[in-house]
């Protein structure tokens, strides 16, 4: 089978998922066409897509941003506030969010890309923190502060509201993941895409060749952030509201974990990492209340009840022993190699 056909076949298979009633024990908590499972699958695909946007920065261009959550959260909150607090129509809210999704990263990227390396990481972290503070501060009671803000469902497209329409939401999430996949593949194989990867390898050389790395970095920063904003809109539709957790620095860190577990700068790595992480986070929570875990001694049981502990440890193990992530699984590092100095 030709390489380019695989994504299309996969897309068709995934699109047909809600039409089948198959029970996969242990993997899902019910038949795959039930709303609960479809919701989980939709979240997996959504975060797979968002992880790909982060990979565009970190994996393909070598930009370690700690503020990607800001642009995702912008998608969630701007749309939510526009329809729920300002009573705009859904279309107008989306258009405004798209505008914000371009202008915000353009402005903040222009500032933060003036510095490189760790300073860039810190500045992006600080901007994202500012966004988080703003959401918690709840200006004019727009964002709902700690409580979050449930979306006014009468303003949402009616086909995307309610538990019976979960399969439509699943298709929206699938469409988002497929679109991000296609755009990322197209972008990294375009001529700016080659420059991004050259910047990752050696920025000085790119400069010596007479190109301006700054312009190319700003380009990829705006593209990745815009796609993350789009992901934020899908998240709002899926969850029917905004929660302040999406603004936190921890949210960016989980994106980083997804990308590294999956494999940075690869065709499938970020998508696979995002899907697996989201699935594991959800299912580990369920598994901790299962009989197998509750019969363990408390020394083992207590840490296993926290998915984030398991995932954090798993992440460290991946960094140590599978440095390329799942996508480059062949290159498992030997123990001796790791501890060799």
């Amino acid at each position: 089978m030709k390489r380019s056909l695989i994504p299309i076949v996969l897309l068709v298979v995934l699109a047909l998922v809600p039409q089948f009633s198959v029970d996969i024990p242990y993997v899902f908590n019910g038949s795959i066409d039930t709303p609960g499972t479809l919701q989980l699958l939709a979240l997996c695909l959504l975060f797979g897509g968002v992880a790909m946007t982060y990979d565009l920065l970190f994996g393909f261009t070598g930009l370690l941003s700690f503020g990607h959550a800001l642009y995702f959260a912008a998608g969630v909150y701007v749309t939510d506030v526009a329809i729920t607090r300002w009573h705009w129509s859904f279309v107008a809210a989306i258009a405004f969010t798209a505008l914000v999704g371009v202008l915000l990263p353009l402005a903040l990227g222009a500032v933060s890309l003036r510095v490189g390396g760790i300073a860039f990481a810190m500045v992006t972290l600080a901007f994202a923190q500012a966004g988080s503070i703003l959401v918690f501060k709840n200006p004019h009671k727009w964002t709902g502060g700690e409580e979050g803000l449930g979306a006014d469902y009468t303003k949402l497209p009616q086909g995307l509201v309610g538990i019976f329409n979960t399969k439509h939401l699943y298709w929206v999430a699938l469409g988002f993941a497929a679109a991000v996949f296609a755009i990322v593949q197209w972008a990294v194989h375009s001529s700016p895409g080659h420059v991004w990867q050259a910047i990752r390898e050696n920025e000085l050389r790119v400069q010596v060749l007479g190109l301006r790395p700054y312009a190319y970095k700003l380009m990829v920063f705006v593209l990745a952030s815009f796609l993350a904003t789009a992901g934020g809109v899908v998240y709002l539709l899926l969850l029917g509201g905004a929660t302040p957790e999406v603004t936190s620095a921890n949210f960016t860190l989980t994106l980083l974990v997804m990308v590294v577990i999956g494999g940075t700068g690869t065709r499938w790595g970020a998508l696979v990492g995002g899907v697996l992480y989201t699935w594991a986070n959800e299912r580990l929570g369920d598994a901790s209340s299962s009989h197998a875990v509750s019969s363990l001694p408390s020394v083992l049981r207590t840490p296993l009840q926290q998915p984030l502990f398991v995932l954090g440890v798993l992440f460290i193990l991946v960094v140590f022993f599978v440095p390329g992530g799942i996508a480059r699984f062949g290159r498992v590092r030997r123990l001796r190699e790791v501890f060799q100095r």
């Binding site: 926290q306 502990f309 995932l311 440890v313």
Partner: peptide
Amino acid sequence: VGLALAVSA
């Protein structure tokens, strides 16, 4: 990063 997540969890 992994350690920070794991320890607080």
